[in-house]
Simulated scan of single mutants.
Amino acid sequence: MRIKNFLFQSFAQVFFPVFLVLFFIASVVIFIRIAGVTFVVKISFLELLTLYFYTLPMMLFFVIPLSFFVACVFGLSRLSFDYELPVLFALGMPPKQIIKIFSPIALLASISLFVLSLVLTPLSDIAYRQFLEKRKSSIGINLQAGEFGQKLGEWLVYVQKSKNDTYENVVLLSLQKGENSQKDGLIFAKEANIDNIDGLMEVRLQDGEVYRKVSDGMERISFDTMILRYAVDFTDDGNMGLVEYWRRAFYENARQDKTRRNLSMYVLLSLFPLISLFYFPLLGVKNPRYQKNYTILQTMGAVGVFFALMYLMATYAPLIGTLLLSIAWGYGGYFLYKRYVARFY
């Protein structure tokens, strides 16, 4: 019991700082992503927090296994180079005792990840889509004067001045490709008003000119009033249930490949703590007298290899690849553990 508490304490001292750092980095990335939505669409601070909380399950799902793997390896490595693990081995504790001690917490981590990935993440994704569907019918436009790269449907928009809901000296550029060359166009207008009517974006332009490419050159058209309408696409993804969300991986539909890939990645990453049990002593147990501390590089290499294989299997063989990689990764760790750890301690 004392050895178990000793190892758990070493694990916790690494896990929580690593988890907080990764969680903070992931949160910054999520807020930057959400900021891309708020660049054009007006949302309140409460709605911004709502979008952030919808992404929490996915964020936790990727942060927890990384933190767990790093904490287990680094905790054992620190004990090795502090000569505490060699003392325990000298007193008769076999390396397999480490596996037995970490097995329950690895199982708990995998169960938690399965709940996050197969239940909470789809539910949060459905809720996120429902939120967007609701906002599509009442979107407020937030075009900034003097800013480049702003989009309104298929149009790039630049406005020189803005006051309330009126924009002055507006430029719209569309480079949408298609059989009809009229899809390309450049519009100048002295004034514009933009409204959203139940998801139908209406741009009313006043006193302007249109330049468009024709077969024999460029055509110029002057206008007093022009109305552009853009219908926001609605999907039914926000109305499906949890079972139907994953059933899409097993019958032909527009999102089958993506759902299969996500399902494979979620299962593999959920199993990661459990099938990596033998990698903890393999990478963490060192002889401080004869081995140098390359734990960071070795850990990064192991995680990088697993994530690369996971992506390849999930992309090209999502169903059979999930089973094969789980078995191969677990057996590979056991084989290396028996050869480089168990035979010496």
Rank of each mutant, 00 (worst) to 15 (best):
M226A: 03
F102S: 10
F188P: 10
F344K: 13
E202M: 10
R212N: 13
V87A: 12
I187S: 09
S103W: 11
L116R: 04
L200R: 14
L200W: 02
Y337L: 05
K177Y: 13
F81G: 03
I141Y: 13
T38V: 14
L172E: 09
G149T: 07
N253Q: 05
E191W: 05
I30P: 02
K286V: 02
Q13Y: 10
Y52C: 01
L79M: 14
N287W: 07
V214L: 12
K4N: 07
L186A: 11
I296K: 08
A189K: 08
S112P: 04
V303C: 04
K177R: 15
F11I: 01
M310T: 10
Q130A: 07
Q130N: 13
R260W: 00
E47F: 13
F102E: 02
K338F: 05
L268Q: 11
Y230C: 00
I64V: 15
L76A: 10
V214Q: 15
G140Y: 06
Y245E: 04
R2M: 11
G146H: 12
G75D: 04
V73L: 13
M310C: 11
I111H: 06
M300D: 06
K190A: 05
A12H: 08
Y52G: 00
V210Q: 12
L20P: 03
G304H: 02
F68D: 01
Q144R: 09
Y266V: 03
M313L: 06
N293I: 03
F11D: 00
E154W: 01
V341F: 06
N142K: 14
V115P: 00
T166W: 00
F6R: 05
A35L: 15
S117P: 01
F188D: 06
F114I: 08
S44I: 04
S80W: 12
F39A: 13
K42V: 00
D125S: 15
Q97N: 10
V21R: 07
L66R: 04
V171T: 11
F11V: 01
V73M: 12
L85S: 06
G301M: 14
L51Y: 15
E147I: 11
S137F: 09
I64K: 10
T322A: 06
R339E: 02
D233K: 14
W246C: 07
R339W: 12
V285P: 03
M93Y: 11
S181E: 14
F148Y: 06
V341Y: 08
L156C: 00
L186V: 13
G208P: 03
L319C: 02
Q176H: 05
L172P: 07
K42H: 04
F15K: 01
F39S: 12
L49C: 12
Y54F: 15
F114P: 08
L274G: 07
S110N: 05
G75H: 08
G284K: 04
F24A: 12
F272M: 12
K134W: 11
I197V: 14
K163H: 06
F306E: 01
N193Y: 14
I3N: 09
F335R: 03
A127I: 02
